[in-house]
């Protein structure tokens, strides 16, 4: 059971760390100061979630400490989905990614409040309350920009189409799927995906955008098994730049 739990915690923590990294890149360059602040806040929350999940891995499951797990692992060891690795692009991509990712996060943590693994169930209750606001932010902008101007609508649709098959990669199943379900740790990616589609479809429609057509063969899998896009390695090199200048130093 411990391997199944570790797999689940690593993929969630890595997702949060990497999307937090990407969100933090908006600090100083957002379309208006209010959005610098919003993305910066969400980055802090996400990085905090990653830290909390790594702490469970450390304290309950015997892995290294949070800083070591975040700053001293190889690219191959990361289990994040490829959606979160993608560069921030323009604001339309970042907000669409946030929308697709955070709805999945909110439902995932909601499901996890029922987890038989108590440390995760406890954390989920707290994190859920924070992600609620991330989702509110995404929904507001998706609707507003979907219905804004001709340009904003076109940009949002195009980013939604682009991000769609990456987003479906969030739900890539692990080899431990059945074990997680039967042990009541997590109700599974399939269930999560179903609830996610039900949740986001009416919002996309309310934004007067079209839900992209899913082509199973185009879904971008691999992240959960350590296969990443070309963007993760440079991101990690940047993240670990200072640490690597003096690997034994305390910072």
């Amino acid at each position: 059971m411990s391997n199944a739990l570790k797999d689940l915690l690593f993929k969630m923590a890595d997702d949060a760390l990497i999307i937090g990294h990407r969100n933090s890149e908006w600090t100083g360059i957002g379309p208006m100061l209010e959005e610098d602040l919003a993305f910066s806040s969400m980055a802090q929350d996400k990085i905090g979630h990653a830290q909390a999940l790594y702490k469970i891995l450390n304290e309950v499951l015997g892995e290294a400490d949070a800083d070591t797990l975040a700053f001293k692992r190889e690219e191959k060891q990361f289990k994040c989905c490829q959606l979160v690795e993608q560069p921030i692009g323009e604001y339309d991509f970042s907000i669409v990614r946030q929308f697709l990712f955070d709805h999945a996060e909110l439902i995932r943590y909601d499901m996890l409040t029922q987890s038989s693994f108590q440390p995760l169930a406890q954390l989920a209750k707290k994190v859920k309350g924070e992600i609620k606001y991330h989702v509110m932010h995404a929904d507001t902008f998706v609707k507003q920009l979907g219905k804004g101007t001709e340009e904003s609508k076109a940009r949002m649709q195009s980013s939604l189409n682009y991000a769609w098959h990456f987003a479906l990669g969030i739900f890539e199943k692990s080899e431990f799927e059945n074990e997680l379900i039967s042990e009541n740790i997590f109700a599974g990616e399939e269930e999560l995906k179903k609830r996610w589609l039900e949740k986001i479809t009416p919002i996309i429609e309310a934004a007067t955008l079209k839900v992209p057509v899913t082509d199973e063969s185009k879904i971008i899998y691999g992240g959960r098994k350590g296969f990443h896009s070309e963007y993760l390695k440079p991101l990690l090199d940047e993240m670990c730049e200072v640490v690597r200048t003096d690997i034994d130093a305390e910072w």
Partner: peptide
Amino acid sequence: FAEEAGRWVRQALMNPTE
């Protein structure tokens, strides 16, 4: 860059529907 890249967002928000 931030001003120019973000202009379309600000313009779209000038037309508040929400």
